[in-house]
Amino acid sequence: MPRYNSIKAGELTDTSYYILLCLTKKKHGYLIMQTIKNLTDNQLSIGPASMYTTIKKLLDADLIELSVENGSKKKTYVATMKGIELLKKEVERRKAMVEHAEKILNHYEEI
């Protein structure tokens, strides 16, 4: 049975969400990992294997693009407009999830 591909379904895993969020500006692999650690106050750490597997999926879905600078061996990545639009939709989806949880948990506290 094939694995569920959340990106094809229009949803982002936490890893793909943070990688795409970091790529609103061009970054290379190591800087992506460091940015995620800093952004999440070291609560989320993504290793190279997981990161590059996710980057490949994001590239295949045209959510990010590879940018090789002249004379540099470093590969940098940046979000495409399609990626930015999906990121915006994902933020709204996650906001709704939090609102649902707050409603339920607020009701739970009243009991």
Rank of each mutant, 00 (worst) to 15 (best):
T54E: 10
L21N: 05
G83D: 05
P2D: 13
Y17V: 06
D60E: 08
K82G: 12
D14N: 14
L20V: 02
T53V: 10
H100Y: 14
A9E: 07
E109R: 13
L87A: 10
E85Y: 14
R93T: 11
K73M: 11
R94A: 06
D60M: 07
E90N: 11
T76L: 10
M33G: 01
R94H: 10
T53S: 11
D62N: 03
R94E: 09
K75T: 14
P2G: 10
M33L: 04
Q43I: 04
E69W: 12
T54M: 09
V91S: 11
I111P: 02
L59Y: 08
I19R: 02
S72A: 11
A79K: 03
K75G: 10
Y17L: 12
S6W: 03
M51T: 02
E11W: 09
K25L: 01
E102T: 13
E11C: 08
G71M: 09
K73P: 11
H28E: 14
V91N: 05
S67K: 04
L58S: 04
I46E: 03
R93N: 11
Y108Q: 12
L39I: 04
G47M: 03
K25C: 01
S16L: 04
D62R: 04
L44E: 04
K25N: 07
A79D: 06
P48V: 06
V68P: 10
S16W: 00
L20C: 05
E102I: 10
I55N: 03
H100F: 13
H28I: 06
L105Y: 07
K37W: 00
I64G: 00
V91Y: 14
M81V: 15
T40E: 01
T54N: 09
K37T: 04
T80V: 08
D14E: 13
M97P: 08
K89C: 13
L39K: 05
I64R: 00
M81K: 14
L58F: 03
K27F: 01
E99M: 09
S45N: 04
Y17G: 05
S45M: 07
K26V: 10
L31I: 12
T13R: 05
I7M: 02
L31A: 15
N38E: 12
T15H: 10
K89I: 13
V78K: 07
A49Q: 12
T76S: 07
K56C: 07
K8G: 05
L86M: 15
K57I: 02
I7C: 01
K56W: 08
L31E: 14
I36T: 01
Y108F: 11
K103H: 11
D60L: 06
G71N: 12
I32V: 01
N70S: 15
I104H: 13
Y52F: 09
L59E: 02
K89S: 15
T13F: 01
R3K: 13
V68F: 12
L39C: 03
I55C: 01
L87V: 12
A61D: 06
M33K: 03
K26T: 03
I84E: 07
T53W: 12
L63G: 00
C22T: 04
S45V: 03
Y108R: 06
D62A: 04
L39E: 10
Y30N: 14
L12E: 05
S45E: 11
K25E: 09
A49T: 14
Y18T: 06
T76P: 06
I46G: 00
N70V: 15
I84W: 05
M81Y: 14
N5I: 07
D14A: 13
P2C: 09
Y30R: 15
K89A: 15
L59P: 07
